[in-house]
Write a protein that binds this DNA or RNA. Sequence first.
DNA 1: TTGAAAGCGCTAACAT
DNA 2: ATGTTAGCGCTTTCAA
Lengths: 366, 366
Amino acid sequence: MSRSVTVYDVAARAGVSIATVSRVLRSPDAVRATTRERVREAVAELGYVPSGSARGLAERRTGVLGLYFPGFDAAEEAPDLDVFVDDPASVPTFTLAHDDGEVHPTSLFLDEVLRGAELEAWKRGFVLMIGVGRDDPDRSTVRDMAGRVDGLVVLARSVPDDVLARLSRRIPVVVLSGPPRGDDYDHVTVSNSEAMAELTRHVLAQVPEGARVAFLAGPEDSPDGGQRWEGFSQAVRAAGIGTDAVTVVRGDFTRESGRRATEGLLVGGAPDALVAANDQMALGAIDVLRDAGLRVPEDVLVTGFDGIEAAALSRPAVTTIRQPMIDLGRAAVQVLARRLEHPDAPPAVVRLPLQILLRESSQRPS
Amino acid sequence: MSRSVTVYDVAARAGVSIATVSRVLRSPDAVRATTRERVREAVAELGYVPSGSARGLAERRTGVLGLYFPGFDAAEEAPDLDVFVDDPASVPTFTLAHDDGEVHPTSLFLDEVLRGAELEAWKRGFVLMIGVGRDDPDRSTVRDMAGRVDGLVVLARSVPDDVLARLSRRIPVVVLSGPPRGDDYDHVTVSNSEAMAELTRHVLAQVPEGARVAFLAGPEDSPDGGQRWEGFSQAVRAAGIGTDAVTVVRGDFTRESGRRATEGLLVGGAPDALVAANDQMALGAIDVLRDAGLRVPEDVLVTGFDGIEAAALSRPAVTTIRQPMIDLGRAAVQVLARRLEHPDAPPAVVRLPLQILLRESSQRPS
DNA sequence: TTGAAAGCGCTAACAT
DNA sequence: ATGTTAGCGCTTTCAA
């Protein structure tokens, strides 16, 4: 591990020039079979692994694609972990705990996007670098990444506009999820509003004329939340429902906020249907409805959005709209790869279909 | 996007030498304030982003750590996704589906390890590169990675021994999860067998003398499965239970295999307690027990292993042992970072505590 | 088919 | 405080 083995070492060992070593690695057919073998042996004997940095520099491409997320953890929340305790005996081998199923509602979304991105990157011969945006004043992480990759996928709104603009002067950038704005980046997104409108129609079809309908909105500054609201309100308007029959309460996408908002809602009397802007809040709403003695779906229809696992496992199972998470990741990398091949193609906007999953919570028993 | 901006461009623009530009970026205090400002302006105006390859080459370190997994997807299973349809109208914006909660039991484990690794890497100023092992004859992905990173975390058994040996000549390698073998790598792992023994004792304490106990084992070649079996059998022996009172059936860690194995088990009569080598199989077992009219935990005690979300959400909630997944990732990166600082320290083995989560499925109502 | 040599963009002595 | 310059390890013409 002292000094790394280089082309020079391999060349010397095989009795050839470094150019030949390079050729054996990159275009083996350009080298006579016997020499090729000699070089390969030297490579194996020395345990040679080419330096990615040197390659990247010479080739002017790194073979790496980047995926940049907004923080899926609060870094400051994570207690320091220090595995190097002085007294090994002080580390228990297990701990016993009574547990009532505390479940971390962490970003399954990002996990799956990541999977899709990795798969597609691999198919195209790239490896994937990931970075997470934390409260990092100058966004040094994403800039670091930009210097090391051939292209970057960033989640919408995870990078300030000016930083993004700067990075995109060096490498192509694809913006994932979130409303395509009229910028010059490639976008990959989903049809939030259309799908929500369709789901709303499905709900409205099941409630009586003049029923009370409620919308449980997300935070004001969420573009996804905004699009979902638009889809809902459009369907409601199209159904000729007056605004007085519609109540809107707002949460912040957490289950707890769904509970609070629903409690507020119930003060004015229970609605016949409750359309939530995401699954977590829908689950929170169901908690509160149940406590209030209301049955879902018999008394109140409830729907969510996202397709998280808890929505499927909950009783009643919650009707929702699933994001094509894996495909979002795959599509983003595809778009990036295409951009690398055609730097001057016009900006692309790819819109992926959502899947509406009809489950118990939205089916009024007839 | 034509030719990238380099130090030379910045230097020219600011009217200084490239060394000064480099200094402004790396040790700003070594440069007079006015020059520093001039350089910074040039950087901003040109949108300069330093090349990671060039840096890596000059510095002899990349600032990147690698995480290599065994394939969490069957690449060949994934249908090709091609987002560039000629007729955009052919792409639906949503699809409607009735759904009964099919849940993908994918590797939550790896997702969380990844999170932990990324967090710790970030704290230490590294970025993370990830790679997935697929049926790739010459393991080119992991070798590619090895050339691009300063250190590598590999999941146990995801890389053949000879390949690993070769990579470790270039960069330090940490092996994650799985039994530490007497090799020269650093290892980070958990106390599978001790925790399983403890859980088994908990179960045995609740069944009558002479009760029938069953173990639902994992695949033969799984080291984790093996260690869990050892913990179980050791506790059973220690309790003075004869081998005739213990039945062992084997599955492959999937829910379906848990069902099949349990069906086979029931042919010989229901056991009083069923200890499964993972959660999925425990859930499958509960499916079958319920269908057979047996109640959990009243008639049969059941336990799992892993701490997946479905185990917490299922009714009855399943007693299990949770892997400290995030901490595994964090610890692996810590060990790697330490190795980078002390290349000659003796190989470390870090063993993280497991958490036994007692839930309904293993508590005989008294 | 092979070798010599010129970069690739940066860092870090060493000079000034 | 700043500039000059020699690498870092590879790829890729261009010659032989």
